[in-house]
């Protein structure tokens, strides 16, 4: 029973990782642009949720939606204000621009919100479901379900709609896409908006389960990069499988070997898998 609890807990955490990584896979995997500020988007989503809950008294649906919308707007604004310009520069400038953006967002949050840890009030979305002795914390459960829904939604958007095809076309070849009448700026801004919006949603849902401070982005950031790489660049379902896998492996190795060994196990398996399959679990070679 305890083992089952460990695995379920790991999978629920894995779903959170997947949720966290979903926006990253959109930008990094498809636009070929490394966004180091992704963790900060999630952090801003958490604070957006907190403000909605404490100021407006919003319930889970409202605060998650509000965080997603606020971050969508921010993502699009960042594309037009910063990314569009650095895209013309060398690769290094592109990488460092989002690194700088991450620091600006993080330290602005330090000034505005202070360094103290905060968490959502217990009333927001809390409690534990007990199913035959198996304990399922409601916040993590909600994050897990949302991760599945979001992943499915993004996947369908990219593979089944005209907008998705246009997004992929721009990612594939910007010039060629322009020749067939697609406006790349609009599509790229949409991609940044979607990525930031899903990060905001992830942040709002994670805020129900975790205490955070402005530096939370760094804690989850590395795991998100690992998840995207492991899942395969550009594969939204891949990020979900990878997230679940990382969560379950971490939980099992923490339980069997001790918490300090869990990252050793995960990263060792990560390196081994990339050695065997450099394109990741679901990526194309």
């Amino acid at each position: 029973m305890t083992l089952l609890q460990v695995v379920v807990g790991g999978l629920l955490l894995g779903a959170v990782y997947a949720l966290f990584a979903s926006g990253l896979t959109l930008i990094w995997g498809m636009m070929n642009f490394i966004n180091f500020a992704h963790g900060e988007f999630v952090m801003l989503g958490m604070y957006a949720a907190l403000l909605v809950v404490t100021w407006l008294g919003g319930g889970p649906a409202l605060f998650a939606l509000a965080a997603a919308l606020v971050l969508f707007a921010l993502g699009a604004a960042i594309y037009f204000g910063l990314i569009r310009h650095v895209l013309r520069g060398p690769m290094l400038a592109q990488i460092l621009s989002t690194f700088g953006l991450a620091l600006v967002l993080r330290y602005t949050a330090f000034w505005i919100f202070s360094a103290n840890f905060v968490s959502l009030p217990q009333t927001a979305l809390s409690g534990t479901l007990s199913i035959g002795g198996l304990l399922l914390p409601v916040p993590q459960l909600a994050a897990g379900v949302a991760a599945l829904a979001l992943t499915a939604g993004l996947h369908l958007l990219l593979t089944r709609t005209a907008v998705g095809s246009q997004l992929l076309a721009v990612a594939e070849d910007r010039e060629a896409a322009m020749l067939v009448g697609i406006r790349p700026d609009r599509m790229q801004a949409l991609a940044w908006g979607l990525a930031a919006g899903s990060a905001g949603l992830a942040g709002a849902l994670m805020a129900t389960a975790y205490p955070w401070s402005p530096s939370v982005g760094a804690t989850f950031g590395l795991t998100a990069f690992i998840t995207v790489t492991l899942g395969g660049f550009g594969s939204v379902p891949g990020a979900l499988y990878a997230g679940l896998m990382v969560g379950a492996i971490q939980a099992l190795s923490a339980y069997w070997l001790g918490p300090i060994y869990k990252d050793v196990v995960v990263y060792a398996l990560f390196v081994a898998l990339l050695w065997l399959r450099p394109q990741g679990l679901m990526g194309r070679a």
């Binding site: 460990v6 804690t219 939980a251 918490p259």
Partner: peptide
């Protein structure tokens, strides 16, 4: 005695132990 990394995102393994 259960040592762990304070920067980790999850402590349920320790609690279950």
């Amino acid at each position: 005695q259960i040592p762990y990394d304070a920067n980790g995102a999850d402590v349920s393994a320790q609690v279950l132990q």
